[in-house]
């Protein structure tokens, strides 16, 4: 079986459809396409052996292919509030940097996440965060505050968490109990855009921490694979439900590591999605759970593992 690796293709608009066709022909998947003025960015999965071929074909088009460890993941960047104290810097800079590595990021601004004693997480916020592959918590400057408020902010969260804060990594490791999956120290409440080399180095460290965490999850998934590869299901949905092509969202279907978020109203489309046939005799309902998302009225598809369905599409 060929291994698909996550890559980002960056090039011009001119003849980029040839690259898209090539990826398709090679058996790869495009999970996200961005067109920005003259430039195109394709977040895609391609067979490892064929990366050089794509590079070669993209050369006359001045396109470049780089490995992007976070393609096909949806990450929540959690900020204690939407006030000027915490936004736009830190949270937005983190989100933007993760996006450069291929992730689809969503900002989650808590309604009452600020303060030491008064910090809170409500059920909607908890459920929304749990719909992601990973949550990055952008916390503040004081050790004391992080120690006291973090247990509250993580209550009920079962996705992996990476914490950032001003105290150094060792301090974060010491004060957070039970441990979380990743820590990045030295990034607290910063009131300017990340631009100094040491600040950018911190963001690189964060990307490493996030990809390490997600790689560990991918290894687990390799032991008990999903019944269908999410980007493959995404391609099927896009082909079979034509309404998806009429959505104006940047990502009408968002690929996650273990599922998809389809941005169609649940009430109208859930039954249609459930009964959609992905292979002869196998419907989506057989291999995945189709549930309402807490994000607006979207549909959340969580693909079940092979061990549960005994089906591999």
């Amino acid at each position: 079986m060929t291994t698909l690796v996550p890559v980002t293709y960056k090039g011009g608009v001119y003849r980029h459809d040839e690259i898209m066709d090539l990826i398709d022909d090679l058996g790869g998947y495009i999970v996200q396409k961005h067109v920005m003025a003259q430039d195109v960015v394709l977040q895609s999965f391609v067979p490892r052996d064929d990366i050089d071929l794509i590079r070669e074909i993209a050369k006359p088009l001045a396109g470049e292919v780089v490995e992007a460890p976070l393609v096909g993941t949806e990450i929540a960047v959690v900020s204690p509030s939407l006030e000027i104290h915490h936004l736009p810097h830190t949270a937005c800079d983190i989100a933007e940097y993760l996006r450069r590595s291929g992730a689809k990021t969503n900002m989650v601004g808590l309604s009452r996440g600020f303060g030491k004693r008064i910090a809170n997480l409500n059920d909607e916020e908890r459920d929304v965060i749990n719909e992601h592959d990973l949550a990055v918590y952008a916390l503040g400057n004081f050790e004391e505050c992080i120690q006291q408020k973090f247990p509250v902010l993580r209550r009920g969260i079962h996705v992996p968490i990476v914490v950032t804060g001003a105290p150094d990594r060792e301090t974060l490791l010491r004060i957070i109990d039970p441990p979380v999956e990743g820590y990045v120290g030295g990034v607290g409440r910063i009131m300017h855009r990340f631009k100094r080399p040491e600040e950018l180095a911190k963001l690189d460290e964060l990307v490493d921490e996030v990809s390490r965490t997600l790689d560990a999850r991918r290894d687990d998934l390799a032991r008990d694979p999903l019944s269908i590869f999410p980007p493959r299901l995404m391609a099927i949905l896009e082909e079979r439900i034509h309404e998806i092509s009429m959505l104006t969202h940047p990502t009408p279907v968002t690929a996650q590591m273990e599922g998809l978020r389809v941005k169609l109203p649940y009430d109208l489309y859930a039954d249609g999605v459930r009964s959609l046939e992905v292979a002869s005799g196998v419907t989506i309902g057989d291999i995945a759970s189709v549930t309402p998302s807490r994000m607006r009225n979207y549909i959340l598809i969580r693909i079940k593992p092979f061990s549960e369905t005994r089906i591999l599409v």
């Binding site: 400057n141 004081f142 001003a166 150094d168 607290g188 409440r189 910063i190 300017h192």
Partner: peptide, 19 residues
């Protein structure tokens, strides 16, 4: 009392006053 917090606040004050 928190040295790291102190440094962070020094930077915050500088940024805000400048902004």
């Amino acid at each position: 009392p928190d040295e790291i917090g102190r440094e962070a606040y020094e930077r915050i004050v500088a940024d805000v006053l400048q902004d």
